[in-house]
């Protein structure tokens, strides 16, 4: 589905990403982990060409994204930025905006149908005609995700979709993302800081340290040694009711 090869990015002399290579399967949910400032967001932006990588290729279903125009990329990749600006438009219209890469001269019946379905799918019906400048942060995040999904992408990238959300909203949003990914066979790459939440929803992990891939694999790669090496903090990994949990232990 997605194949990233030897991807590199720098701001002038400051190397941010170096020799990043990994693959993602259809319907796979991949969580990118790593300390602040390690280049997780930069990686997502390089994958969808918001930042132009200095080297390497990004292939989606055998096509090199770096050779495509923005609108063509938008038909294949949905992107949920860390921040969404609000304005006086309704939830419905905000989600409808996601049809932009596929719009003809005007909105047609199919566009409206897809938007209706996604609004119901994410439980936003009651808000459909509320302006997005008067809904909560969790609801706004759902709107942003719905907007990315109605692009009908093969892959969606989410930059910290659960930061600033309460516990219930975090669970709801990750549940919804995972469910849609599995149903529609959409691959998902997301960054987050909460390792325990990641353990609960990710199929696999990509751990970045100092701009390079430190580890790539299933939940089994989350070990006390790896976490301590990457975050510089001693932890224990325990099981509780079938969930694996990473718990910081004192020095």
């Amino acid at each position: 589905m997605l194949d990233v090869n030897e991807l590199g990015f720098d701001y002038g002399t400051r190397q941010i990403l170096k020799d990043i290579g990994f693959g993602v399967l259809p319907g796979e949910v991949v969580v990118v982990l790593g300390p602040n400032g390690v280049g997780k967001s930069t990686l997502l932006r390089c994958i969808n060409s918001i930042l132009k990588p200095k080297s390497g290729t990004v292939m989606v279903e055998g096509e090199n994204l770096l050779a495509l125009g923005r609108d063509e990329i938008a038909k294949r990749l949905g992107y949920v930025a860390q921040r969404t600006e609000t304005s006086r438009i309704t939830t419905f219209d905000a989600v409808l905006l996601g049809r932009k890469p596929r719009l003809g001269w005007n909105v047609n019946a199919r566009d409206l149908k897809i938007v209706h379905e996604m609004i119901r799918r994410l439980g936003l019906e009651a808000l459909a005609l509320r302006n997005i400048d008067s809904i909560s942060g969790g609801e706004l995040q759902k709107v942003a995700i719905a907007r990315a999904l109605v692009q009908e992408p093969n892959l969606i990238l989410l930059d910290e979709p659960t930061s600033n959300l309460d516990l219930k909203n975090q669970i709801e949003i990750l549940d919804a993302i995972r469910q849609v990914a599995k149903e529609q066979n959409i691959s998902v790459v997301l960054t987050m800081h909460d390792i325990n939440l990641a353990l609960r929803y990710a199929d696999s992990f990509l751990i970045i340290k100092e701009g390079k891939i430190f580890a790539r694999g299933g939940p089994e790669i989350i070990t006390p040694e790896v976490i301590e090496e990457v975050y510089g903090l001693p932890v224990a990994v325990e099981s509780f009711n079938g969930f694996r949990l990473v718990i910081p232990v004192g020095n």
């Binding site: 932006r45 969808n48 918001i50 125009g69 923005r70 609108d71 063509e72 990329i73 938008a74 038909k75 990749l77 949905g78 992107y79 949920v80 930025a81 860390q82 921040r83 969404t84 600006e85 304005s87 438009i89 219209d93 905000a94 905006l97 996601g98 932009k100 890469p101 719009l103 942003a144 907007r147 990315a148 692009q151 990238l157």
Partner: peptide
């Protein structure tokens, strides 16, 4: 539609192909 997208933030707009 481009201006609607920019109203949602520069990064979101870029993600929407603008």
């Amino acid at each position: 539609w481009n201006y609607n997208a920019i109203d949602a933030g520069d990064e979101t707009a870029k993600g929407l192909g603008v």
